[in-house]
Structures are given as structure tokens and as C-alpha cells.
Write a protein that binds this DNA or RNA. Structure first.
Lengths: 208, 208
DNA sequence: CACCGAATGGACCGATCGGTCCACTGATAT
DNA sequence: ATATCAGTGGACCGATCGGTCCATTCGGTG
């Protein structure tokens, strides 16, 4: 059921989504009600249901999509251009900068956890995010390998996953413990391992 | 305010905590109310408030502590005896086995996210968990190094953190995407990197 | 201008749910 | 035996909150 939206309507809709996202980042999903969103975005109850007919879950799903896009967007332009070791390091600094300033918590995790029961399409959002992120990292590793900056025996896809896991785990630990060193060490270790020589005799594991 | 509990009372209390934990694992924190817990544990409303005077947040805090203990307990005896490469591999298999069977989601993350605002002691639970886990892994790396199974240049503390981040990130990705390969590759890569030779010229980052 | 549908405002409803209260039981100690 | 207090049962209340509904305004098009 595609809705018809005027320019004004579309603007209001995005204002709601972004306002709700900001509110949820600050206070957590569980502590944000429709009335809070209404107040923060200067809208009325009927507008919320006008733009999100299925109510709160509908709105939260839109917020989740928005936040998922943000995760990659705020890593740009670095993430899309990992073509040299120096650029990888710049991306690394950017990652640490992002999560250092975002200790309140990953806005996605709680959102996903809450929406999951009964909304299989929610999982798709985070599955897609992981896949895009993982592929961008793998592309970067491929570029390094093509440039001869790292060992040819490295599998770019596996390396991309290992780095993504380091970021994810480091960020999780940072958020959980408020200790930046977890992310710094995890990410630095994962990247440095790219440059270390040595044959990899890793068994193959297929993904997807 | 230390409460006096008889043996019967203590049994009821743990029945409530464990029942609530199981329920929350199945349905998520947001979908579990006191009435659900009451029904699932064959108790009455007054018992819930008898054993947890501060109400729901009090109960959820107890559940969080319980789940935090579980995280390490279910890795035993492997986690406490990482004294050879073979034993590390056994632990690795155990980790994958655990999280493969637990795809519903990490019972802690949602719990923490919900309790955090206003409960600083909640953070302590997960900070302690991270520290204990990290130290056990570092001990294992030290044992490997002492046995000459890995390079002397490896810093056990940093390696422990890197491995912990790989598990955390891999598990997060597994739960988010329902794709076991993320955890398998992340953990396998992190462990294999221990055995690869090469000088580490990593800058020092202090923790704590 | 007239019209129509989008956009907006806000009162209102009903269910859910955390929390309170009081009555009752049962075990133990003196 | 009986006093006492932990343990138990469950009715009940009040607030919160998602969701509905209708009235009104706005903006573009014929």
C-alpha cells in the first residue's frame, strides 16, 4: 500500500523518524513513548498514525532502517575507499572516534531485540547492514592485496569478516564497559594481523 | 538491608530468578511482565515483591547477575584450563556450540540496555564479566607462551582482549544475522593469529 | 472560486501492567 | 500452646500508553 506523500508530508515524516531516532539514542527504546516522540517532533498523535499506519512498531522499524543506514554513512568517505594502508588507518581512527562519542549504546541492538518477535523483516535490515559492511571491508582488503601491501595468501572475505567482528565486538565491549581500550586494541590487532607475514592454513567456511 | 531467608525462601527466590531468566531468553525483556513471571514460576504477586522489594527493576537486576554468571559458567571447564593448543581448540568448539544453540539473542544485552538509565550498578555487572573473561583468556595465552607453543613477542593481555572481541563480535553478528559463519571465522582467525610468527610492533594501550 | 484529499490538532478510550494491601498459612522457638 | 514472622495468595488500584476518531486547516488543481 504505497502512500502518496506531498513534499511537506515527506518532510514531516523524516522529521518524525529523525526526532524519534535522536530521542531513542538518548533515552533508550524502552523509555520512549509515542507521546515523547510527539512532543519532541512537534507533531500530533494523528500524524504519527497518518505516516505510520501500523503504529509504533511501524515507526520503530523506520527508525531501525534509518539507524542502519547511519552506521555506514558516518564511516564515509573512508569506508568506501580503503585502497591503501594509510587510508585503512584513517578509517580506523574514524571508527574509534565514532564509537568513542557514542557510548550511550548502539541504537540498533535494543531496537532490533525489541522488534524481532513477530517481525522477520527486521532481521533483514541488520543482515543487509552486515553484508554491505563486510563486503566493503573485503573490497578494501582486496585492494591492499592487489597493491601488494599485504600477503597474497590472505583471504579477503575472511579478513573482512574478522575485521568486522573486531569492530562489532570492540564496540560492544566499549558500550558495555565504557572502556575505550577494548575497541582500540581489538581493531588495531585485527588490522595489524593483515600485515603480518605467514602462511594461513585456515579451513574454509562458506558464508551465506 | 540484608534480608533473612529460610531455605524455603531462598529456593523460591532462585526459582523466580531462573524462571524469569528462561522466560526472558525466550520472549525478550520487553515482552515479559510480572504476571508472566508469576505464572511461569507458580508464585504470587506478593512473593515477587517480597523477594524483590524494589519491584521489577530489582528482579531484572538479579536476572542480569544470574545471566552474567551463566556466561562464564557454561564455558567451563574449558575456559579455566586453556593450557595447551588442543585445549584452546576444545574451548573454541564449545563457544561455537553455545552460541549456535542460543541464536535467540544474548540475554544480557537487552537487559542491560533497559536497566542502564538510572542504575549505574548494572554496568558494574557487565564490566566485571568482561574483566573476568578477559583475564581468563589472557591467562590461557600466558600458559601457551610459557609452554613455548606461541611466539614470545605476543602480549597476553592484548591477545586476550582481541580474542574476547572476536567472540563478542562474532556472537553479535551471529545473533543479528542468524549466520554461524561470522562467529566461526572471527574466532578461528583470532586464534590462528596467535600461532603465526612475526614481530608485533603494536603501540601500547593501557586498560583500566 | 470551489473542491478534494492530504495534513494537522487533540480529546478520548481501553487494555495492560507495575505496584499496593490485606488476609491466610505454616514453621519454629520459647 | 501460642506468639511470631517468613512465606503465600490474590483482589484491587492507578497510571501509563498505544491506538481510535472526528473536526479543522492547508495546499494544489480544474
Amino acid at each position: 500500500m504505497e502512500r502518496v506523500l506531498t513534499a511537506k508530508g515527506a518532510a514531516t515524516r523524516t522529521r518524525i523518524v529523525e526526532g524519534a531516532a535522536a530521542l531513542i539514542r538518548e533515552q533508550g527504546v524502552a523509555n520512549v513513548g509515542l507521546d515523547d516522540i510527539r512532543a519532541a517532533t512537534a507533531t500530533s498523535k494523528s500524524q504519527l498514525f497518518h505516516y505510520f499506519p501500523d503504529g509504533k512498531s511501524d515507526l520503530l522499524f523506520a527508525v531501525a532502517q534509518h539507524e542502519a543506514d547511519q552506521v555506514l554513512a558516518e564511516q564515509q568517505p573512508f569506508l568506501g575507499d580503503l585502497t591503501s594502508w594509510r587510508k585503512w588507518q584513517a578509517w580506523r581512527r574514524r571508527i574509534i572516534e565514532i564509537y568513542d562519542g557514542q557510548r550511550a549504546g548502539c541504537p540498533l541492538s535494543a531496537l532490533i531485540a525489541q522488534l524481532r518477535p513477530g517481525n522477520p523483516e527486521v532481521q533483514q535490515v541488520v543482515t543487509d547492514l552486515s553484508a554491505r559492511w563486510r563486503d566493503l571491508l573485503a573490497d578494501g582488503v582486496r585492494a591492499l592485496r592487489a597493491a601488494g601491501e599485504i600477503d597474497q595468501s590472505i583471504d579477503p572475505d575472511q579478513a573482512g569478516i574478522a575485521i568486522l567482528a573486531a569492530v562489532t565486538g570492540g564496540a560492544t565491549l566499549l558500550i558495555a564497559t565504557d572502556e575505550l581500550a577494548y575497541l582500540e586494541i581489538a581493531l588495531t590487532t585485527a588490522l595489524d594481523d593483515l600485515r603480518r607475514p605467514g602462511v594461513r592454513t585456515r579451513r574454509r567456511v562458506s558464508l551465506g
